[in-house]
Design a protein around this nucleic acid. Structure first.
Lengths: 125, 125
DNA sequence: CAGAATCCCCGAGGATACTG
DNA sequence: CAGTATCCTCGGGGATTCTG
């Protein structure tokens, strides 16, 4: 440890949360359920747009397992299933708010940075 | 519109940010640069652990292009390159803080939810 | 040291049915 | 309607090697 040993970070303590909340499709799903209340399968499907039923099911199961959403089955014909954000899921509100604020404040800075980087025709190194 | 048309969400306004900040490897990189200051390529490589040089380079370029980090080349032998978080990157601080707080407050709730879901031997639907 | 160049693999996720 | 069941693609990322 007196050498040039770099202490491997304690795996970046926020990585687990990122995996849970920001993996593929989970953000739009949580966003939809958070902002538009209880919804049926097809509603989500249509609202999100490009997702296929298979993948939507996978993600919904995962989010349900993680306790972020709830699933309610109504034994009718035709069957009706409703998804709703849970208390734990709602607790992500402030996080989404922070994210949203950062977006409106800085997204164009990112765009600008990209433009500059691109037109500066990379004199590497 | 008077029909059962579900208005497709304005693409979940936070999705772009998620792509920029929470895509693969970017979180640990930003975290490392945010918490341990300016660092060389190898330092980052060792600190992050599992990443390969190729992918690390890719992600660093991307983050540099997005204006979240800066790259400084020192023409020496052996060459020395240092990466540092930019002002724009530092502006992510509050976001990371919120994320970190959510983690310490709710991560065990998620674990608990998973255990309950698993041991409840899925009576689908 | 800080990468660039190659080759290659594999599995998430898309497309396309089909069913209770 | 709310999913399963299959098949298949395709590109992110790993491993390895080379160089200024």
């Amino acid at each position: 440890m007196t050498e040039t040993t770099v202490v491997r970070d304690s795996a970046c303590e926020i990585s687990p949360v990122v995996d849970i909340v920001f993996s593929r499709w989970t953000t739009p799903i949580l966003w939809a359920l958070n902002n538009h209340g209880r919804q049926r399968f097809v509603e989500l499907e249509r609202r999100i747009g490009a997702i296929t039923p298979k993948v939507l099911t996978q993600r919904l199961r995962q989010l349900e397992r993680d306790g972020l959403i709830t699933r309610t089955y109504h034994a009718e014909v035709p069957p009706r299933v409703e998804y709703e954000i849970s208390a734990l899921g709602r607790s992500l509100g402030p996080l989404f708010a922070t994210l949203s604020r950062w977006a409106t404040a800085n997204l164009d800075h990112v765009e600008q940075a990209r433009r500059e980087y691109d037109e500066a025709g990379l004199p590497r190194p």
